[in-house]
Nucleic acid binder design. Structure first.
Lengths: 227, 227
DNA sequence: GGAGAAAATGTAACGCGTTCTACATCCGGA
DNA sequence: TCCGGATGTAGAACGCGTTACATTTTCTCC
């Protein structure tokens, strides 16, 4: 994988050019279009990876261990996921999707968009800090991903954007709102990197996010009021 | 290195507990306190790493190749840098320090803090895009770094903060300005990650930064005017 | 200028991500 | 029901980060 070329779409999706992988970079719901037994294997592999991550962080997610724990052969893991990093990025996407669903169903209190956003973040962070090693693995994998994971990373971005947008209660997704939300997502990912590296506490992260959310959304709502 | 513990200072700096490494996590100027020959080796190793990075990105920076190219033994590379990642993070810090110096000496035009900040970014990005593979290596290493690189990453944060603060021309570093600058730095690092992964063009990055800078600093200057 | 410590060298070895290969098994269609 | 390709298995093998070690070179200090 000596990729990189400044502009590349990491194209895949060709029907079955080679030996036709099951799901690969499908940015849709995980394991869509798989036979039940395959879907089960797919999910089992992800679950094993997350377990190992929870136990020992990124280093403990060893592909042989993942294979053993999910009861499949090493080659099978690689049939479903082209690399350890792809696997972990998909896992992170699933985590955030779960979080997003929780946000949809839950009542989001708070007067302003900024307040609701912070409410959600304050609800999410404790969940993360219950399991620092797990997010050490997932977050570092996501930030380390190379161009071959572009599809998965784009999906991750979408999920995050949706999560924050509906947290803010801004269903009317104007371009401006989208930009604001993307900025928040960027700051959050950077903060998570600091957190998993042990350079910021959960409190630090929340304080930082509070500043960012306030600055970005206060200005945004003013702009909207003006228009 | 199975680190992690939510709160950890990655303590080093003990005078010479073990076999006394030369510089290690010294967050000061690189290779400070080294004999000339050692300082030369230290810089040569970094230079080799950057060359290899420029030629083939993260994967091409192979420790044996770094050793060969700098004319030292593999073990010597590891005496100066505890891991490939530490090495690359130090290299990134040096790059940003160089950029920061350029900013200090250069006249920064532009009326508002936001405009000057964007001016600097517009000046820096082309330099990065001349060498995408180099920054693929450096940026991904920085984001992948684990807790053992906390000291280097903190230093990186300081350098970035300083760079942006003086770009904005805000020498009066109030806590609020500092927060704003940190947010910009976070957004920038996230954007760089997207860029090296081939998911955003240089234009995308600049547009995104423009939005962020505008939102954050417009609001900030208002707040300052009010006080 | 010589002794002892520190630094550097060269090389072998280990661990884990990834690839490859030969074989077994499953599944959908004629 | 049986065939053929896709899927899964087991295990060897390769590359590179990292460590260990025996040996030589270079400093430091007296």
């Amino acid at each position: 994988m000596t990729e990189q070329s400044t502009t590349e779409t990491a194209g895949e999706e060709s029907a079955s050019t080679q030996t036709s992988r099951p799901a690969l970079g499908s940015t849709r719901s995980p394991g869509a279009g798989l036979r039940p037994a395959q879907r089960a294997r797919y999910m089992r592999i992800i679950a094993s990876a997350e377990e190992l991550a929870s136990e020992g962080g990124y280093d403990a997610v060893q592909m042989r261990a993942v294979a053993d724990r999910s009861g499949v052969a090493l080659g099978t893991v690689y049939r479903y996921f082209p690399s350890k990093n792809h696997l972990l990025v998909v896992a992170l996407v699933l985590e955030f999707e779960t979080a997003a669903e929780a946000v949809t169903t839950a009542e989001i209190p708070g007067g302003s968009a900024a307040e609701r956003l912070m409410g959600v973040l304050r609800g999410v962070m404790p969940r993360l800090s219950e399991n620092p090693l797990r997010y050490d693995a997932l977050v570092r994998a996501a930030m380390f991903a190379d161009a071959s994971s572009a599809a998965e990373l784009d999906h991750l971005g979408e999920v995050l954007t949706r999560l924050f947008a509906q947290a803010a209660g801004l269903d009317i997704v104007t371009e401006e709102v989208l930009n604001a939300v993307r900025i928040i997502a960027d700051v959050w990912m950077s903060s998570l990197v600091s957190w998993v590296a042990g350079r910021q506490s959960v409190g630090d992260v929340l304080a930082h996010m509070d500043t960012a959310v306030t600055l970005v959304f206060d200005r945004l709502t003013e702009l909207q009021r003006a228009s």
